[in-house]
Design a protein around this nucleic acid. Structure first.
Lengths: 349, 349
DNA sequence: TTTTAACACGAAAACGTTTTCGTGACATCT
DNA sequence: AGATGTCACGAAAACGTTTTCGTGTTAAAA
């Protein structure tokens, strides 16, 4: 049950000063070869490692970044984390994680808990409740204290900071175009309420695709789900809403859904109503999830490249952190847009 | 771009000493009401927060725990994280995350990176490569430096530390018993090589269940997959191995698989061979994944209560951390066993 | 008036580093 | 021999806290 060894202990043991030990370990030219050898050997023997906390305090730099996400049991977000962790580790940073559970207050508390010196900067995706309340004071306060933020996926234009987003508009547009090319005449959209920024953009993509092909969007083909707390809305209700959609629009032959759950539910309902996929109805979902790959039939998706988003966000943040040291007043914020890919599987022709 | 305000700055501004400010903020009786009010008001105005790093250094306690897992894009592990984060946050701890990617060296590097004072203790699940190499020096070194470790799920008896495991043996046993009760006469097992501790235990459960029902295990009904790197073994090969299993044992009417991927692949192959689930073949998987719930037919599973495991592990670790302060020499290690539940869905009768 | 006690505050140490600066002991150059 | 330089090391400050201890001032007690 020994504690970790410190410079002070080595110094005492070897009967030299703390400074000498420190310099010897960092191979300073100030120290004689003899002493260096002696100190280094001793340090190695006792497996000395500089205490990171002390370094953080001295350098006013923790080499740790915080990531706040709404949910972790989720393929998109866990892939983002994987990306963040990957580049963070490569560039010598640790990653501390906070879950908001889509709750405004947990988001605030989490940020407070970290913004007191524990980390150098944030990577985050805004919770649904925050988006709904449109209360962004915690982001602004954090940034005004000199702590950079990089937002990804769920972003908001009111906040000026670096951002990494997926090309929601074009991704959706291309997906819907695909359906149109595949001869779908009556394409339904299953989306979220407009306060979810990505939902709004995907809806817009849907509309633009129709427009470009001179198809008139019909309001009753658009189902906007109020998922105040996603995944908690019980499946039953979701499915019955979708069933309603199908029943009041018998001619639906294509569905574009903005997330995996909606897409799969649509397929389930369609099957239940005796519709064949992809022959009667074709379905595309905007998702990176695994369910899509393993469902029967497997789902054609718009891939979001989640891991790449995480990597990009981490690079952006660390770049900012390291440049901040050299030059300041570099108040240019970037928004990186990640292109999507259409991954065709069995749910389309 | 102002930095965070410190005690020193407040002291200078209010023309008192640092100690006075500190005491005033902590409501010490030593300080007069007047000064307290003045200091507290000022601190509130400038949104003063004690710097966590400085506190960590002073108290030799970071209030941060590290969690090292083999993979994060995985329902089991992400649920565990959710559990850890939940109780950690409730008890005032942060969570720093490290991914080993099933690699021994990344596991070592990750632990090294954190064991230098950044955290107070570890929660971890051992990587497959480490299990294979049976090289556990990094765990022992870490613990010998006074840093506690709690292992979960993938544990190893060579290491003396707190552990949280799922009741793999009985979980598997009950699942297989269920198949037997459902009149299965020829039950196949799809498992991993034995160096994966949980795979081994689940295999043992399978055998014990058969034994209790006087059924003789047949070697050619047991398929041990060598997933040196799970999920990277391409699906094709996995499926062909399973197909082989079915073809050389036409009478298989039950399958017990030790993870989600194997179970789903078995269902896929069975369907491909014209077998109906659950009428011709019944399938149970040892998994907590979502695929099971959404597959067609949905998969009967042995639930591992991943989130609960995470919560338990965090509680165990924090208990140890906080008791260490009061009483020491409490060298009793606990192993918590989490009971499993059989969640019956459509893949069994 | 002198002693004592309460009060309100400041100085300083400690946590573990790194780094700047100062200095004593030599050796080298005129 | 005196001036100068090099070498090898130590003292101390700084990062931001908390806490122990000491101390000057004032009011109460003797």
């Amino acid at each position: 049950m020994k504690r970790k060894i410190t410079l002070k202990q080595i110094a005492r043991e070897l009967d030299v000063s703390i400074s000498t030990v420190s310099k010897a370990l960092r191979n300073s030219a100030e120290i004689s070869e003899d002493t260096k050898q002696k100190v280094q050997a001793f340090a190695k023997l006792y497996n000395y490692r500089p205490n990171n906390i002390a370094l953080s305090l001295k350098n006013r730099k923790t080499n740790t970044i915080g990531i706040i996400i709404p949910e972790i049991v989720h393929h998109f977000f866990s892939k983002v984390i994987r990306g963040v962790e990957l580049v963070a580790n490569n560039r010598g940073y640790n990653v501390i994680i906070g879950l908001s559970n889509e709750s405004f207050s947990k988001e605030v508390i989490n940020m407070d808990m970290l913004a007191n010196g524990s980390i150098d900067g944030f990577i985050l995706s805004i919770s649904k409740e925050t988006l709904q309340l449109q209360d962004y004071h915690h982001f602004n306060e954090t940034m005004s204290q000199g702590m950079p933020i990089v937002m990804f996926d769920r972003v908001v234009s009111d906040i000026k900071c670096d951002k990494v987003i997926v090309d929601d508009l074009n991704g959706a547009k291309n997906a819907v175009k695909k359906l149109i090319e595949n001869k779908c005449k009556s394409i339904a959209l299953i989306t979220t309420k407009d306060y979810v920024s990505v939902g709004k953009l995907r809806t817009q993509g849907y509309l633009e695709a129709l427009e470009e092909h001179k198809m008139t969007p019909k309001a009753d083909l658009i189902l906007k789900i109020d998922d105040t707390l996603d995944y908690k809305v019980d499946l039953e209700e979701l499915e019955s809403e979708i069933e309603q959609l199908f029943k009041s629009n018998k001619k639906i032959d294509g569905v574009f859904a903005v997330n995996e759950l909606y897409a799969l539910s649509a397929m389930k309902v369609a099957r239940k109503l005796g519709l064949d996929i992809p022959n009667d109805v074709q379905v595309i979902g905007f998702t990176d999830g695994v369910l899509s790959k393993h469902s029967t039939p497997s789902l054609t998706t718009v891939s979001q490249h989640a891991q790449h988003m995480g990597e990009k966000a981490a690079d952006l943040l660390i770049d900012k952190l390291e440049n901040e040291i050299n030059e300041d007043a570099d108040e240019e914020y970037q928004t990186v847009i990640i292109a999507t890919d259409l991954i065709e599987r069995e749910s389309t022709k």
